[in-house]
C-alpha cells in the first residue's frame, strides 16, 4: 500500500515524522482502547436494562445512539462491545505474534530439519481458510471467549511465522550474524541481540494487519452467531442481533458496523502512515 497523503502537514519531533492521516488513525485507535478499558465506568445505563419503550429507537437526547431490538441503550452496548472486540482480538494477536515470531526466528537460525518440519506443518495449517477453520472448531468445541482467542491465535500463527521467518532468514545471512556466530554466541543471544531488533519494526506492522484480520474474523463469526454468545456481545454480535432493524436503517444496526469499520480503517491508516525516522545525517 502506498501512503495516502504525502503532502499532509508534518509534525517534527524527536527525529520522527508522522503525517496528519497517521495522527488521525492513531487517535481513533487510542480512543477505542481507552473506551475498552474504561467501559464499565462510563456506560450511561447497565447494558441489560431495557430503557426505551420502543425498539430500534432513533438517536435522541437520552439515547445518543438509539435503542436496540429489545429497547436497550445502544451507547452502553457499543461501549461494552469495544471491550470484547478489542480484548479478544488483542489477546489473540499477542498469542499469535509471540509464538509465530519466536518459532519463525528459531526456524531461520537453526535451519535444517527443524526449519523444514515447522515450515511444512505451519504452511499446511495456513492452507485451511480461516473462516472454515473457526467454523470447524466452533462445531467441535463450542464457542466461548477462551476458545475464540485460542482459535484465532492458531489461525494467525502460520502467517506470523512465515513473515518473521522470511525476515529472519534474510538477517541471518548478513555478515554481522556470521560474525556473532563465529564469536561463539548462543542461540538466545543471536535471537535477542542480532535478529529481533532488526525485524521488530516490520513484524509489528505485520501484527497490526493481522489484528485487523482478527477483528474482521471475530466480527464475521459473531455475525454468523458462532462467535461471542449472549449475554456478552461484541460489535459483530450487535449487528447480528439487530439485523431486523436493517429495513428501517436503524442506528442499532448501523452504529456497530461503523464502530468496526472505524477501528479497522484507523489501524490500516496508522500502519500506512507510521512515523518515519529522519535519516539524514546532516540533520542530526
Amino acid at each position: 500500500m502506498t501512503s495516502v497523503a504525502k503532502s499532509a502537514p508534518r509534525h517534527q519531533r524527536f527525529g520522527y515524522r508522522i503525517n496528519a492521516v497517521g495522527v488521525a488513525g492513531a487517535l481513533v485507535v487510542g480512543f477505542w482502547i481507552v473506551v475498552a478499558l474504561a467501559a464499565p465506568a462510563i456506560v450511561p445505563h447497565p447494558i441489560g436494562d431495557i430503557v426505551d419503550t420502543d425498539y430500534f429507537g432513533p438517536i435522541s437526547r437520552e439515547l445518543w445512539l438509539g435503542s436496540d431490538y429489545l429497547g436497550r441503550d445502544m451507547t452502553s452496548r457499543i461501549l461494552m462491545g469495544a471491550r470484547y472486540t478489542l480484548g479478544i482480538s488483542i489477546a489473540s494477536v499477542i498469542i499469535a505474534g509471540v509464538s509465530g515470531v519466536m518459532l519463525g526466528m528459531i526456524a531461520a537460525i537453526t535451519g535444517g530439519v527443524v526449519d523444514m518440519v515447522l515450515s511444512r506443518f505451519l504452511d499446511a495449517l495456513n492452507s485451511i481458510p480461516s473462516k472454515l477453520f473457526s467454523l470447524v472448531v466452533v462445531a467441535a468445541v463450542g464457542s466461548s471467549i477462551p476458545v475464540l482467542i485460542v482459535t484465532m491465535a492458531v489461525i494467525y500463527i502460520p502467517g506470523a511465522f512465515r513473515f518473521a521467518r522470511a525476515l529472519a532468514v534474510n538477517i541471518n545471512t548478513m555478515d554481522f550474524v556470521v560474525v556473532a556466530r563465529i564469536r561463539g554466541e548462543s542461540l538466545f543471544y543471536l535471537i535477542r541481540a542480532e535478529i529481533l531488533p532488526n525485524i521488530i519494526g516490520p513484524v509489528l506492522v505485520d501484527l497490526g494487519l493481522r489484528f485487523v484480520f482478527i477483528v474482521l474474523l471475530l466480527s464475521g463469526l459473531s455475525f454468523l452467531g458462532l462467535g461471542v454468545k449472549p449475554p456478552y456481545a461484541d460489535w459483530g454480535a450487535l449487528v447480528r442481533e439487530n439485523i431486523g432493524g436493517l429495513p428501517y436503517a436503524a442506528p442499532a444496526v448501523i452504529v456497530p458496523s461503523l464502530a468496526i469499520a472505524s477501528l479497522t480503517i484507523a489501524v490500516n491508516l496508522l500502519i500506512d502512515n507510521l512515523p518515519t525516522k529522519i535519516r539524514d545525517r546532516e540533520n542530526s
Partner: peptide
C-alpha cells in the same frame, strides 16, 4: 482507488452485504 481499497479491505464482508441490502433493497 487506494483509499477505496483500504476502506473495503478494512470492513467485514457482512457489512458490505448489509450496505448492498440497504442501498438496493431499502
Amino acid at each position: 482507488l487506494t483509499i477505496a481499497i483500504i476502506g473495503v479491505v478494512s470492513v467485514p464482508e457482512f457489512m458490505i452485504a448489509t450496505l448492498a441490502v440497504l442501498l438496493f433493497a431499502v
